[in-house]
Structures are given as C-alpha cells and as structure tokens.
Design a protein around this nucleic acid. Structure first.
Lengths: 339, 339
DNA sequence: CTGAAAGCGCTTACAG
DNA sequence: CTGAAAGCGCTTACAG
C-alpha cells in the first residue's frame, strides 16, 4: 500500500508538503511541487478517503437514498441526479431500500451519515420515513427531502404541488362535461396519494359536484389492482364516465380493464393518470394516457445542486423550499362525456 | 458529536470495552455490556465509519459501478443487485457514469477503491474499461466483472454466452427458411456487440449461407439509428427476409421502420433482437419482439453473493468464472420465410 | 474480563 | 515556503 508518507520519502519532502500539493492548499515551491507530482505519478498514489475524511471531517460525497431503485419510475429522476452530479464536485452514491422497508432505509441513512457522505438526498413520499427524517434533524446532518414533509419540522424541501395538480386534472375532466368522476387511490401510506385525493375532492366540491362514496376505490395489492378496481367501477350501478387515478401505473391497469370489458377508452370512459411516466409497467401497450406531469428530471437535478450549495455555505443559509407545479398532458385516454 | 470516548465516560468503562461491545468481540462482562448498551442508547451513538475503516482496513461496503443507471435496461439487473444486497451483510452503494464517460467511471472507481468499499462490481461490456480493470488488478482490489473481459488477465468474471446466443438466434431464423438474413450491429466498442456479430457470422457459415456484405449495418447515432439502417435494408436491391439486431432497443427501431414502410413484421420481414428487455425505449408499442434472453436478474444477484464470498474468504479462492447461457424467447416478430 | 497505548493515513494549526 | 507534532475516532495487540 502506498501512503502519503511513502510519497514524501520518495519526493524528499515532508508529509505536510505532500498534503499541500494534493490538496492544492498553502504555499508550495514549484520545485517541491514537481518532485511530489513525480513521486505520485511513479508510485501511482491515490489518497485514502477514510483517513482524509477522519482528518478533514468532510467526505466530498453526497448520498441519494430511494426505495426500489429498479423501478422504471425513477428513469427521469435518476437522469436528473446524474446530470446534477456532473455539475457538482461531490461524488454521488445511490442506495436503495427494497419495498417500503424502513429498517433497510434507516440502516443506509445511518451508514451514509457517519463518515461516508456530507449530505443526503432523501426521496420518497413515505409517511413511515418520519423516524429517519427526525434522526437527520437530531444529528444536524445536511439533507434535502424530495416529495415528503413532516409537519412542524422545517427542512430543505423539494415538493410537487400534488393537490393542485390533481385539482387541475379533475377540473379538466369537469370541463369536458364529466360529473360522475371516480378516483382510484394508491397506497394511502404515501403522502403523495393523500394529496392527490384531496385535490380530487377539492375540485369536486368547488364545482358543487357530489361524490358517490363508492366512486373512491383504494388499491389493495399494488398498482396491478387498479385493474380490479376499474372493473368494479365499470360494472357498478352508478357507472362513472371518468376515472382519475393516483398515478399512471394504476391508470395503465384501469385502461387494460376497460379495454378487456369491451369499452372504448376516451369515448365510453375517460381515464386520467398522474406522473407522465415514459415507461409504464408490464409492457403496457394501450393508448397513451392523459396525465399530469411532474418535473422529475428537474427535481433530481436541482436536489443535487441545492444540496451542494447547502454544503458549501455551511449552516448560514435559509432552508430551501420549492414547490414545483405540474402540467396537464393531453394524450389519448380522455374525451368529452358521452351524449 | 458523540464519540466512542464519550460513551465510555458515560458508561464508566474504557473505550476498549465500548469497542468490544459494539463489535461484539472479545470478552465483556454482562454488567459492562449492559452499562455500555445503555449509554449508547441514551446518547444515540452511531460509530463513525471513516474512523472504523481506517482502523480496521475494512469498510463493510460493496460498490456497484455502471454506466447510465437511469437506463431502464438495468431494471432486472438492479433488482438482482438489490436482492443480492439483502443476502449479504455488506452495504451496497451504486455509482453511475454518464454515457460512455471513462473518466467519470475511473474517478468513481478510484474513489470507491480507496477507503470507501471493500470490493466492487463493475458492469458493462466496454472495451474502454480496460484501464480501469488494469488499475483494479494492479492495486489488488477485489472486484467482479460482469459482461466484460480483457485478454490475458484473469479476474472474477460473470459472462453471458453472447456468441452462442446470437448463433442460436440466427440458427432459429434459418430453421424457418430464412437465408437472406441481415444484421444490425450496435456500438462496436462494446464487446457484447462484437460477440453477437460473431455468433451471426458463425451461424451463417456453419449453414453454408453466404453473407451479403451490405447486409451488415452498423448503427451510427445510438439505437435510434436502427430505424435508418432497417430502412436502408428494406429498400435495398437484395432485401433480406430477416434481420437480427444486436439488442432489443435497436430491434424496436427496426420494427418501427418496417411498419412505417407498410410492411407486416413477421410476415413480410422477420426481426429478432437480444436481451428480452421488459421495457423498450421511447414508448415502443409495436408487436412483442422475438429475442434472446440473458439472465440479468440472476447475474446481478450472483455478483453480489460471489463478491461477498470473495471478500469473506480473503485471497484464498479460485477466481470465479461463470458463463450464463441464453434462451430464445419466441414472441411476435419472427415468422417463416415468405413463399 | 479490562484498560493503556500505539497505530490506521491523513490534515492543520503552529513555529520557524 | 517548509516541517514536527498533535489530532481526527476508532481498533487491536499487549499486559495485567
């Protein structure tokens, strides 16, 4: 193993001087610098990060923690992280917890926050992340939270206006004449789904349309059960003319169900999603889903850039709070109400 | 900041004893253990990984390095890594280099190999990774290489039989009566594409079918140019009846081109891919592509498990070399030759 | 079963 | 411009 000390001996200078040249700090004579650089070259020396971290109390790395990194949902977001990475001098490492595994996520956070990164990006609208967030606050560790929030604690926050976006979506359906609008709700342990449901309710109330309680369906076994919920809705007595889903994955299954029932989507029934995912699960090949777009790429990129700023400015910074607005993307699954 | 020393004071024991209980090593009286555990609990102590790494020369982490983590191609592979992670006690961190950026990849490898991980999984069939691989060998760092190889150096290797898989694919086309079989070749700087091309050539030779040189097309601007290449093939004088593509992404564009030309895929022309990707780029919605499957999930999982073994057994282990075989997956884009 | 001491490989005041 | 020395927060022989 080649250490800084060995480099120093080879170069005929003190370890201090070697340190100065690899950190490009303090005064070093041209002559000394050349000797050190040559020794580094010859010995192929790379500084040990653990030792460096311990001495400097700084790792020069940022951690990104998500659930289910394999999910194609992350496509845009990861691209944002990657592009953010090219604009920061920090190394970026990703950690993934499977499913909604809080314990696994917590383990990674404790790992990353103790001498392996300087800051972390925590993604995910999980209510169950509260303990993790509290931990980060308690140890006063720099982090930025995407798409999550816990009441009463103010942190660096990147949010999407899910309530507003859902409200827009439902208002759009109403503008096309729909009144019997159903809602298929995703996992209620995720704040994002609760917000979107509230947006749905708001829009209905504001337009003085009363909601048939049987028109609100919760998925049970993941987004796949959007299929069953849609089927139930379509076969019910008070069949809705439009269905707003918590996300595109659910919507894709709703569309499949409608098609399998012989319905023509957008004509016989409208289906609207949320997310504007480019990649839908399980090889979906139905019509393109009318949806609400959230700027995931931008958020991913911003999260790295903002966190970099936070780290560089130390504590002397206003907490970041940014709410990204959404946009309706008209595609093929929504049409005017029949008749 | 709460350190081990503070815990020791609080518990009224020496730092040595605290270290023993957090590492569960050596003898500790029940009484001392209890006092230490209580102090840890009260102070909410978490050991500093950098200090630990420096002292133990062991990080208890594994790094996974890939290009373009955002690519949905990684879906199965990442799932494999994640599931592998649940079977090892190592923490897993992912790093992503954008595009074919060797410099970025090298930077991450140098970072990970110097006091941040104990071993790394290097994915990708890039010929240009040679310098990285040589570096890893030179510093004697444990790693496992997926889908890559450099001649003359023996390393832990997880490979896919790309030559055999491609040969099978082309033999399958031949068995359906095809003779004028074209090949659209992906980036020739990736070994995988060269191997598959060799498989194509082998199959043709073994069946004594001569190849029309104009039937071998190289993509130019990424998989999207599969579209143009297919168009050229379909409009050429000696139009092929079947086209074998280096991968499914290219094949998906070839299919798009055929359809846009008014051809019926599988009847007028057969298209075969490689990878059996569940998620095709850019919202592909054509027929399901007949292809060759590689067990990416298994490989991802195995890579973590094998590397864990290597790390636990120190140097005293035979190098790993495993070649995974492939399987033809018949879907909708291949049919018997016309007439 | 326990603790004092040295050491892991760096950095950073400090003195010159 | 340069270097000796202390220290970052742990672990691990070693002696008891």
């Amino acid at each position: 193993l080649v250490t800084l000390k060995i480099v120093a001996e080879k170069a005929g200078v003190s370890p201090t001087t070697v340190s100065r040249v690899i950190n490009n700090s303090g005064y070093v004579s041209e002559d000394a610098r050349r000797k050190v650089e040559k020794a580094i070259e010859i010995l192929n020396y790379v500084p040990n990060n653990a030792a460096r971290t311990l001495a400097k109390k700084r790792t020069n790395a940022i951690g990104v923690v998500v659930n289910n990194l394999h999910d194609p949902f992350f496509h845009d977001l990861i691209k944002g992280f990657e592009d953010g990475a090219t604009e920061t001098s920090y190394n970026i490492v990703f950690c993934s917890a499977l499913g909604g595994d809080v314990a696994g996520k917590e383990r990674y956070v404790k790992y990353l926050t103790n001498g392996v990164t300087d800051g972390i990006v925590l993604y995910g609208s999980y209510l169950s992340d509260e303990s993790i967030i509290n931990y980060l606050i308690d140890i006063n560790f720099p982090f930025i939270l995407i798409e999550n929030e816990i009441s009463g604690r103010i942190v660096n926050n990147l949010l999407i206006d899910n309530v507003g976006g859902a409200e827009d979506a439902v208002r759009y359906l109403i503008s096309l004449g729909h009144k019997r609008i159903a809602h298929i709700v995703g996992n209620p342990n995720r704040k994002v789904n609760i917000d979107r449901m509230n947006g749905y309710i708001n829009a209905m109330h504001k337009n003085a349309i009363s909601i048939d309680p049987s028109h609100i369906k919760y998925i049970t076994t993941g987004y796949v059960s959007g299929y069953d919920k849609m089927r139930e809705l379509m076969l019910s007595d008070n069949r809705p003319t439009a269905v707003f889903c918590s996300d595109d994955a659910i919507a894709s299954y709703a569309v499949r169900a409608a098609i399998d029932l012989g319905l023509k989507v957008s004509k016989d029934v409208s289906v609207m999603g949320f997310d504007n995912r480019t990649i839908l699960p399980d090889g979906y090949r139905g019509p393109d889903i009318t949806t609400v777009e959230q700027p995931l790429y931008q958020i991913g990129k911003d999260s790295i850039c903002f966190l970099t700023e936070v780290l560089l400015n130390g504590g002397c910074m206003q907490p970041i709070r940014k709410v990204y607005s959404t946009e309706i993307i008209i595609k093929e699954t929504v049409g005017p109400v029949y008749g």
